[in-house]
């Protein structure tokens, strides 16, 4: 739909303009603006409570900003419900458990594929996912809540890999995973990037995130403290992340 707009090619894939947002009376973001160009990988860094997760939620429509606007492909998406963001090609892998614990592995996948591929395409999409992650295929009838943390993350990523969304918002994908599994997750993220998906990575494991990212944004107390290419971040990240006053 956005492709029909005349300036969509020039506009960034995602843009936040002066976004303020929060939860009930609590405000978490104060005038956050940034743009994410197609095909780039952006790392969103910052200490706990700096507002990273809130930014991620704004980008996928889960939270409606109280001020400012959200633009996808040159179209104003502010205030639209989250499922419209998803239909426009934004996939958000939220922090923590991001699969339906009460549904089986297959149902988890079918929920997404049924919407994007229709009834007919679901079967093929499922096979594609199982081919990539044979482990999920073995457990297709298993309820996702009984999978291990790493397997749940694989399930969430399998969905993304098959979907090939335009934008993936990955919130703390490595949280609670052993280092060796985190490496796997980042290898998959690289594959996703190579397939043409734009990435917004929210991460505390700074080293991993910076290893894959082109640009970085550092949030502090709900405001942007740094926005630029990773190469310019320099040793700034030590100071901003470690010694926050």
């Amino acid at each position: 739909m956005a492709a029909a707009e005349p300036d969509s090619a020039a506009a960034p894939l995602l843009e936040l303009r002066g976004v303020e947002a929060g939860y009930g009376p609590f405000r978490a973001l104060f005038g956050v603006s940034f743009a994410l160009a197609r095909g780039r990988v952006l790392a969103l860094l910052g200490s706990n409570g700096a507002g990273k997760t809130t930014v991620a939620r704004v980008c996928s429509g889960l939270i409606v900003p109280t001020a400012g606007s959200v633009w996808l492909d040159g179209t104003d998406f502010t205030g639209r419900p989250a499922h419209e963001y998803a239909c426009a090609g934004v996939v958000h892998a939220p922090e923590g458990r991001s699969v339906f614990a009460t549904l089986t592995v297959e149902e988890n996948l079918a929920l997404t594929f049924g919407r994007s591929r229709g009834r007919a395409g679901t079967g093929a999409a499922l096979e594609e996912a199982y081919a990539m992650f044979p482990r999920l295929g073995e457990r297709r009838r298993q309820v996702a809540g009984t999978l291990s943390g790493g397997e749940q993350r694989m399930l969430a990523l399998a969905r993304v890999l098959v979907e090939k969304p335009r934008l993936l918002v990955a919130d703390e994908l490595s949280l609670g995973l052993a280092p060796i599994v985190v490496d796997d997750v980042y290898r998959i993220l690289a594959t996703i990037r190579d397939a043409g998906t734009t990435l917004l990575i929210v991460e505390q494991h700074v080293h991993h995130a910076l290893g894959i990212a082109d640009d970085a944004i550092v949030l502090a107390h709900g405001e942007i403290a740094f926005d630029g290419p990773v190469s310019e971040l320099g040793d700034l990240h030590e100071r901003v992340l470690g010694g926050d006053p």
């Binding site: 889960l62 998803a86 239909c87 958000h92 339906f100 149902e107 919407r115 994007s116």
Partner: peptide, 15 residues
């Protein structure tokens, strides 16, 4: 069934 468990996550799946 998905909505019963998590309406927000269902929205993220585009529903």
């Amino acid at each position: 069934r998905a909505v019963v468990e998590s309406p927000r996550m269902t929205e993220l799946a585009g529903v």
